[in-house]
Each structure stands twice: as structure tokens, then as C-alpha cells.
Design a protein around this nucleic acid. Structure first.
Lengths: 186, 186
DNA sequence: GATATAAAATACCATATGGTATAAAAATGA
DNA sequence: TCATTTTTATACCATATGGTATTTTATATC
């Protein structure tokens, strides 16, 4: 059994339920490998989670960053983000990164550090996006780019997290549209 | 040791960290009672949590409902809510109810049922509040009262949850103000 | 004061967790 | 073909969990 296959199994398991609710034993069983094999490959549960998060980041989070860098103007890009959060099938069971972030205190040191790195990277991407294409006419006065970026990030997380809890996509779309309209209304 | 004192100890423990991270053993130790005593009083961990949630609801959640029923107009009441979420010292470590709701799948049946009851009650209170004092001029067109109520509830939860994770109160206030401005802007 | 009764504390059980030592098996070398 | 080394799997360990049976302690009654 190759390490990539184990990573895949662990990722879908963590992703479909919650990292805190999936044990190492369960992953070994699902992947059909023994615990010593897993520990030789990843060192610890923390090491496994960190590897899963890395793999997840480049396979999924990059999709969000791509939307932000495609650059079709503020309103269109926000609409694309809303589409992604409320309708993309990949987010049907939520976002593994947000799940990890929500239970950050339960993570091991490696995984927690990666979560914080990714969080900072995402914030930087939001800032770059907003400063590249915000419209001075519709942007709220006295709202800094940084604050707008945090606002955007929080609402993306909120929408996708609601997705994981089975909320109606139409409602999620309505909520997120309403929230983000604060960034494009004069 | 009286049952009320145990309830108090359990409530602050659950509240300051997270219901999922506090064991029955730890509560017994903190309260200075034995496990059999606790189990005789509350039957199970689920029973204890349900009792704690009931006690919490009448001691804390009622404060939110009071703000909504005091009726000073839409904008003023929303400001009072923002104040409560971002600055009230009782919310410094977050809201126990929201913590339970966020980890709903980890709760026992009694507690989970209570969480859903309280959730529905809160939504009803928001609806009553909004329909009593919304201003047809500033209320967004094509936004139902129910959707507005959900929006309000979600942002209250978001703000208080951010409070629990140590976010800067000033930032929380800024975010929540921005979000709720969607309900009072023409 | 002796005894019956209610309360509480200790000790315990079954289970699950993350993690590892040891025994079995397979592959590799001669 | 036999010996050596490396990989794999079984069995195990220490710990923590929710929950109880049993023993000890205190209380009340006679």
C-alpha cells in the first residue's frame, strides 16, 4: 500500500466527518494497512494530519485562490466565490481546512502550525485580490482592505461550514450574497 | 454538596473551554464530589449537559432575548446586540449554547434535543423582533423576515464564537456592524 | 449505646485511544 | 539452498473515557 493511497483515505475520512472524530485505528482499517506501517510513514497522528492538510491545500484550496486570481472584477469574482461556497460539489461536506481550524486546539503542533500558515496565506490572497480590483466608488468608506479581507474570509468559511451541516444551498447563497453586498454597495 | 453547586461548576467548565473537552471525571474532581453522586443526581453525562444547558439558557440566553424585546427601534437594538456580542464580559469565553451547537453531533440525545429547541426559540424571537420593528424603507427588498432572522442569528453566533477564540473585540465589532448594516441600508 | 438505613467514596469494568515491542513473513544476498 | 536483512502484522502497553458494584462512612431511629 503506497503512502499516497493512505493519504487519500485519511483525507476523505477527515473531510467527510471531522478530524477529531476519526481515529488512527479507523484509518488503518479503512486503508487496509497496519498501524506500524502508518507510523513508520508519518511518525505520528500529527504528522499524518499535517501531510493530509498539505495534500488538501494544494488539491482544493488552490481552487479558491484561482477564482480570486482570475480577475473578472469585484462583483463577478464575489459571485464566483458565492457559487463555489454554496454550490460546488467539492464543498458538499464542508472544507477540511475550516474543520481543522474550528478545532484548532485539538490539533497537534505540526498541523496547527500549518493551519496558521494557510490562514495567513489566505488572508494575504484576499488582500491582494481586494486591492487589485476594488472599486473606490462602491467600497465602504473607512473600511480598510485588511478588514475587508477578513470579512470576506470569515463569510467564505461560514458559508462552507453551513454547507457541512446540511443547510439548504439556496439559503446559504442568500445569506452570503447579503453579507458580501456590504462590500459592493455605495 | 448541593446539585446547584455542581451545575455551576460544570457550567463554567464547559463554558470556559468546550463541552467536548471536559470529562465527567474532571467535573467531579472540580466539584469535589464522587462520580456515583453525580450519576445519581443527573443520570448520565447527557443528563448533566442538558441540565447545564437549561440553567445556562435561563441565566444567559434570556439576556439576549431581553435586548430584543426592549424595543428601541431597529438600528438601536442592533447596536445593542453588537455591543453585547463584542463587549459584554459574559461572552468573553464565548457562548456555551453556540459551543454545544457547533459540536452538536457529539452531544447526547437529550442535550441535542434541547439545543434544537433553543435554536428554534431563538429564531422565533428574531422573527418577532424584526417584524415588530423593521422599517420598510431600509429593509432590503425581496428579503423575507425569516431569512433576515437567520442572518441576524448567524452573525450573532459568529461574533460571539470569534470572541471565544480571542479575536480583538474592536475587529469583531467592525465585522458585525458591517454585516448587520445590510439590514438597515436602503 | 446498638442497630438499621441512607450516603458517599473507593475500587473496578469494558472500551477506545495513540503508540510500540515482538514475532512472523517476505524479500534479498550469497 | 541457506542465511541475512527488511518489511509487515499481531499482540501488547499505558492512559483516559463513561458508567457501576461494593465497601466504607455517616445519619437517624430505637
Amino acid at each position: 500500500m503506497k503512502a499516497d493511497a493512505v493519504l487519500d483515505v485519511a483525507m476523505t475520512a477527515y473531510w467527510n466527518s471531522d478530524p477529531a472524530d476519526v481515529s488512527v485505528n479507523a484509518i488503518c482499517q479503512m486503508a487496509g494497512i497496519s498501524k506500524p506501517s502508518l507510523y513508520r510513514e508519518f511518525g505520528s497522528e500529527d504528522g499524518l494530519m499535517r501531510a493530509v492538510l498539505d495534500s488538501y491545500a494544494e488539491r482544493v484550496l488552490s481552487a479558491i485562490f484561482l477564482i480570486l486570481q482570475s480577475g473578472e472584477g469585484l462583483q463577478d469574482t464575489l459571485d464566483a466565490l458565492i457559487d463555489f461556497a454554496a454550490a460546488d460539489p467539492r464543498m458538499e461536506t464542508g472544507c477540511l481546512f475550516y474543520k481543522m481550524r474550528a478545532g484548532k486546539h485539538r490539533l497537534g503542533p505540526q498541523t496547527r502550525a500549518r493551519v496558521e500558515e494557510i490562514d495567513a496565506a489566505a488572508q494575504a490572497v484576499y488582500v491582494a485580490f481586494l486591492s487589485s480590483c476594488r472599486d473606490a466608488d462602491t467600497w465602504p468608506e473607512r473600511l480598510s482592505i485588511e478588514a475587508g479581507a477578513r470579512y470576506l474570509g470569515e463569510h467564505l468559511a461560514l458559508a462552507i461550514t453551513q454547507r457541512a451541516s446540511g443547510e439548504d444551498p439556496a439559503r446559504i447563497r442568500e445569506m452570503m450574497s447579503l453579507a458580501l453586498s456590504a462590500l459592493t454597495r455605495p
